[in-house]
Design a protein around this nucleic acid. Sequence first.
RNA 1: GGCGGUGUAGCUCAGCUGGUUAGAGCGCAGAACUCAUAAUUCUGAAGUCACUGGUUCAAGUCCAGUCACCGCUACCA
Length: 574
Amino acid sequence: MNRYLVTSALPYANGPIHFGHVVGAYLPADVYVRALRRQGEDALFICGTDEHGVAITIGADKNGQEYSEYVEGWHKEIEKTLTTFGIEFDIFSGTSTCPQHAEFSLEFFKRLRERGYLQKQTSEQLYCNQCELFLADRYVLGGCPECGHESARGDECPACGSWLDPLKLVSPSCRVCTNAPEKRETTHFFLDLPKLRDEAVGAWFGEKTWKPNVDAFVRKLLEDVHARPITRDMKWGVELPSDLVDGEEGKVLYVWFDAPIGYISMSAEWSAANGDPDGWKDWWQNKDTRLVHFIGKDNIPFHTLVFPSMLHGVGQDYILPWRVPANEFYNLEGGKFSTSEGWTIPLDEFFERYDPEVARFHLIASMPETSDSEWSWKEFQATANAGLADTIGNLVTRVLRFLDKHFDGVVPPVDEAHRARLEGLLLNECGAIGDPAEHITAFRFRKAAEQLLLNAAVANVFIDRTAPWKLRKTDMVEAGSVLGACCQYLGWLAHWMTPMLPGKAQALWEMLGQSGEVAELPWPGTPCAETWQLIPAGQKLGEVAGLFDKLEDAQIEAEIANLKTRALASSDEL
RNA sequence: GGCGGUGUAGCUCAGCUGGUUAGAGCGCAGAACUCAUAAUUCUGAAGUCACUGGUUCAAGUCCAGUCACCGCUACCA
């Protein structure tokens, strides 16, 4: 049997996450894991915050906070958001707090070096005495040597578009503190990606089938891959003991290098917490494990090329990714999500007014699977109202309230006299019933959401065709058979809802008078004549309530207005 | 500048290796029904598939060019 090791891109602990992050990497992974588990598969779901790097030190300094304090704040904030969305990791750790992280990261460095995959290079870089920092290109400002423009960035001149070498900028200054940086020599270690590509990783990539958006991009990249530096001179990061780096002091691992190792160290933290310190090996070094990375498109090179190179390079039988279902980007009402420009929806505010499960469902239904897509308030309203409230929610109440009124709130039997005809009608003639989990495990999330609604519509057609409100007046037994069949079908619906709408699924399950967690039962697939009756006749129903509230036009218009106000307010501040 | 992507009904998006009258949901129009959260069901209108040229018996689907938008461009994480 296969087991599934599922990761979501580590969110950077430097700010809040938004719908784009959630829909790109966390929500699909959660839905996927829920579907796998219901199908009886063994799955481990790993995530945590990425907590090192310069951007974090600058953010913390600006706030006057210790790095660890700053990171912890964002870690909690991000975790809260993900929890509200109902995303349930087996562990949500952090690269600066995971007890195993430094050890694993240093082991990677050490082994890669021993095995000849690291090169040492010395170069001159700009160093800011004030900030005590080697400046990344984008943190240097200065005059453009090409066109004379006064405020070019270290990587590119906004006026003439030239590609710049930060060392050649005229009178450079530090973008953080505005002091003039000086040139300093420094030595760094580089990961020899071309060598790893030629040895194994290139062939491995070529053999696999990737999503089209991954394939074209990486294939090109592979042709022209360069060695990448994996060390930096700074204080915040996984510190390299000087004996590992030929006596150099003050080196840390570059954050992109240690971050993906977090997937492994966090797995080790998880297994240690479960009393089995070596348990992570059963996942990471087991050929039967299918490693699945959920990421946004910005992370594609790291997860299809760089991290696999690292895993291969250490030579410890680590498995390489099985699938990388990368999503494209998610925009907001025609523009990019941008916290700094105020073009965003603060999620804490959002959740004061909206049901997280409805948001979950809408995000799944509009996921940027093949190309960029976007959050639109009107579309959200349509999903919430026409999709969830009208199609599913109304179906539930139309059946259950009918039973409350005319059948004492008890599931009626499907009488033998009508069984064959009704089951033929319901299962074959009222629309195509599909298994949402099949789409989910094939990474077709939008399709899965669509299928769930189509399945619900089948019952609406069935009810219209059988018209139990008429039958009730002529043949109470037959009316009971119809409603009984509907109850059975609602049971299926509750099952089908679990990966995408776990809370609503359980609520429906309880309305049907069922006890226990529907999510813990085996996945039923699609109904056939032998299997479709799940709920015993005579079962007393639970209390019936609306599953989904409708969203008013005025409310949605107010949200769109809010969005614009927020962007304006933010531009005034600048 | 280089590389990659996107451009399909009013809106949001599907369309795999080219093949009959180009699809879905929402919205819109009409009808049926009245059990239900004025919900549901049925029917319908609506697209020169960005533009130009090419390959082919046949192109939204391949090739070239043009335009628009987006991403990446390696010491950013």
